[in-house]
Amino acid sequence: MSRQIIIEMRDVWFSYREREVLKGVNLRLYEGENLVILGGSGSGKSTILRLLLGLEKCSRGRIYIFGKDVTDLNEDGWFEVRRKIGMVFQEGALFDYMSVRENVGFRLYEEGYKEENIDRIVREKLRIVGLESVIDAMPGDLSGGMKRRVAIARALVGEPGVIFYDEPTTGLDPITARTIVRHINMLKEQYRVASIIVTHELEYAFSLADRLMMLKDGKFIFEGSVEDFKRSRDPYIVKFLGREEMV
C-alpha cells in the first residue's frame, strides 16, 4: 500500500538579498515518518521550514501541504494551513512575558476556549513531555532542554498532523538532547505525528531519521536511509561524516 504524501515541494527556488539560498529543491514528506534534513550552517535548512510555514515566499516552484497548493496563499490563508502544523523553533521561542501555561495554551486563549478546558488541555500536553510540574513557571526559570519540551507541548496543542523541528538538540547537553530525541520518536510512534527535523548533529539525526536528506549550497545532494547515507561516497558527505567522527 502506497503511503500518503502530506507535504511536497516541487522545484522550489528562494533567494534572499540577491543570494540564491535554495536552487530547485524537491521534497516529499509521507504520513507518520520522520524526515531529517541535514546540512551545514547557511545551507538553507531552516529556510525550507520557513517556506513550509509561509513565513517566506518562494521565488519559483510549488508547495503542497495536505494536498493543497499553498504557494500563493496570503497571510489569512496561511493562518488556516498553520493550524494543522506544529513548529518547534530553535531554543523554543517561548513568549518570555508569558507563563508556561499561557505559552502552551496560547492558541486556545486566542480561540476563546474556557479556562477549565485550557487548563485540562495544557496539563495533558505538558504531561506528554513530562513537565506538568512547571505549568506556572516563567520561561526564564526553565533550562534550555525544558524550554524545548514546553515548545513541543505548545506545538502539540493544535493536534497537528506534522511537526517541524528547527535544530531541536543544538546547544543541549547529551542527556537532555537524548530526552528530546526520545520525545520526538515517541510522538511518531504513539500519535502517528510526522516530522521534519532540521539539524546538523549526526548522532541525533541517525536516531531520529526514517529518511535522510542532505542539503548543500541550496540543493539536495542525498536522499535515502541512514544506512545508505553512511555508505555514501559523495565527497561532501564523507567529509561531513569524517569531521563528526573526529569530534
Binding site: R50, E75, W78, R82, F95, R154
Partner: peptide
Amino acid sequence: DAMRVLGT
C-alpha cells in the same frame, strides 16, 4: 514567527 505560526 512563533506567534504567526500559532495563528495570531
